[in-house]
Amino acid sequence: MFKKVVITTTLAGTLLFAPSVSEAALGDRTLYNGMSNSDVTELQNVLDDKGYFDYHRATGYFGTVTEDGVRDFQRSAGISVDGVVGPQTVSALTGSKSSSSKSSSYSSNSGTVRYGDRGQTVKNLQSQLKSKGYYSYSVDGVFGSITKQAVRNFQSANGLSVDGVAGPNTFGALSGAASASKSSSSVKSASTSNSSLVSIAKQYIGVPYVWAGTTPSGFDCSGFLQYVYNKAGESIPRTVASIWNATDSVSSPSVGDLVFFETYKAGPSHAGIYIGNGQFIHSSSSYGVTISDMDNSYWAPRYLGAKRV
């Protein structure tokens, strides 16, 4: 009986004094790529306040966008750049000045901006990209991974060197004649046959994922897309990267458009077909052909953009 009382008292004490997850605060544990919890949400909010989170909302998932922001902050703060949020980074985050008071070395007359830069020139760049349909996020003056990809998309569509760096040639094309840039009218309108495209795609829900698979016995990501588009009478390339390069950017997806994600490597490495209501159909390595939400904690931070065949 005495043992039971001791155990019960000890357990009660543990429950009484153990901090709940909701009570955890930034700095209670080390954060790194792949984690998903409320501490990551707090981290993203802090990074966003300081201008280092290149996404429109906190997701709670520590992916490439968050890691890029952490690395940018670490580099700016002059501390070890490893993308991991440990005590040193937390201390710098909670004690450093906000980005609004940070002096920028990139003034509005700077000739070239690239990944990691911030300031008025980046804002000008984002505004121009947004007006031409290549950038759909806030104009925040932070040159992160989304801005870099938007620059690459614009460069690819306008016959420029595709390096993601906005120099004189890129700015010249952005502000030049209409023929040098892609006007919104030059992007093909969504096809009236897109509903049939989605219907074809849905026929294969449940087909297993097979590496290099291109048939209904098993699809990989791009194999599924190529098969469905071929069935709908459209020819597209075989790999995600080549599909990305062969299609037209749109600011937001319509039914039947392709949506691209950055997963296991830099750049577009996964894609699906947008079916409306914030969902897309794709061949997932975990579930085979399935429908997923664009805003879930895995896909939202990895979204690169939409394109139209």
Rank of each mutant, 00 (worst) to 15 (best):
F261W: 03
H282I: 12
P253H: 02
V259L: 00
Y274K: 12
Y264N: 14
I273S: 14
I275H: 11
S252H: 05
A266P: 07
N277S: 15
I291Y: 01
S269G: 15
S285L: 05
G272P: 14
P253L: 03
V289D: 02
I273P: 13
V289T: 05
S242K: 06
S254G: 00
V255E: 05
N245Y: 01
S292L: 05
Y264C: 10
H282R: 14
V250Y: 02
A266G: 13
T263I: 12
S283V: 04
V255N: 01
S251L: 03
V255H: 02
Y264G: 14
T247F: 01
S292N: 13
T290F: 00
L258W: 01
P253A: 05
D293F: 00
T290G: 01
S254R: 01
G272H: 08
S252P: 01
I291T: 12
S249Q: 10
I273C: 13
S254M: 01
V259M: 04
S251R: 04
K265V: 06
V289A: 05
A266D: 11
S252A: 08
V259T: 08
S286Y: 15
D293M: 00
D257P: 02
L258D: 00
V250L: 00
V259E: 04
E262F: 08
G267C: 10
D293H: 08
S284M: 14
D293N: 13
I291N: 05
A246V: 00
S285C: 09
G256K: 04
S286G: 11
G278L: 07
V259G: 02
E262L: 06
F260Q: 06
E262M: 12
S251N: 03
S283G: 06
G256L: 00
N277E: 12
Y264E: 13
V240M: 08
G278F: 07
S285A: 15
I275R: 10
S269H: 13
V255W: 00
A241P: 09
F260G: 09
D293E: 05
W244Y: 15
T263K: 09
S249L: 07
G288E: 08
S254P: 00
G267S: 13
T263C: 14
